[in-house]
Structure formats: C-alpha cells, structure tokens
Amino acid sequence: MMVSVTSSPAPSEEALATIHRSFMTSPFNRLVGIEFGGYHEDGVSLRLPVGTEHQNGAGVVHGGVILTLADAALGFGIARTVGNRCTTAELKINYLRPVVEGVLEARSHIIRAGRKLVVARAEVHCGAKQVAEVLTTFAVLD
C-alpha cells in the first residue's frame, strides 16, 4: 500500500532512534513484554512471547494483551512515518481465534497519513494463524 504523508517530511535518523527508544522502553510495553520485530515499508512489527501472566480466567491470552500489542505496533509505525507525537483516537479490533501459547506478532500498515489524522490497520498473528485484525485512527498532536 502506498503511504501518503502530507503532515511533515520523513523524520531524521536521530528522530527515528528516539521514537524506537521511546516505544521499546515505555514502562507499559516493558511490563507486557513487547519486543521489537522489525521494520517494513509501511509499518513495524512487534512481538510478544506469550506467558501464563497474559492469560485470562479461561486460560487463553487476554484480549487486552492482543490489543496492547497491536496498538503499540500502530503507534510506533505511525510515529516513525509522520515524525510527530500522535495518539490513538479510536480503535476497532476483531478477535479471530483464541491464543493459548506461542509468539504473537503484530504488523502495522499505514493506509493514509493526513495532517491531523492517520488511518492504519494491523494484523496480529500467532505462528501461521491470524488471531486479530485491527483498524484504527490516530490523531497527530503537533
């Protein structure tokens, strides 16, 4: 998908390093156990090795954990593209399958980056199986 950026020029290497550090050292992301997966053309991928601490009372991964991973991959990918501070304005998630164990991977894809709003989607996989699909709007703050 072509990424259209109208808000600002591409961030500098230094800005990218700051964004990377900011996401990977964020207290909540660290608490959950989120790891860097890699960059791709229109987003980033983040990984989460599933542990018992991520389970709900039914013994499967809590939906909030999957949403947190997807939101982090979306925010990281969007910040990397627009170079501004941004925040989730709204997010819709479809849970496709329950997850018991393995490594979750969220891949974000920017659909359109405007001056004030960015629309993006993310897919969360566990191995070869897709476990969630996400469509979101982020607000660009400055």
Binding site: M1, M2, K92, N94, I111, R112, V119, R121, E133, L135
Partner: peptide, 8 residues
C-alpha cells in the same frame, strides 16, 4: 484509496 472497511 477512498475508504477502508472492517466488518463482521
């Protein structure tokens, strides 16, 4: 690309 849709 004018719209993106996610549905159940």
């Amino acid at each position: 690309h004018v719209a993106e849709v996610l549905s159940t």
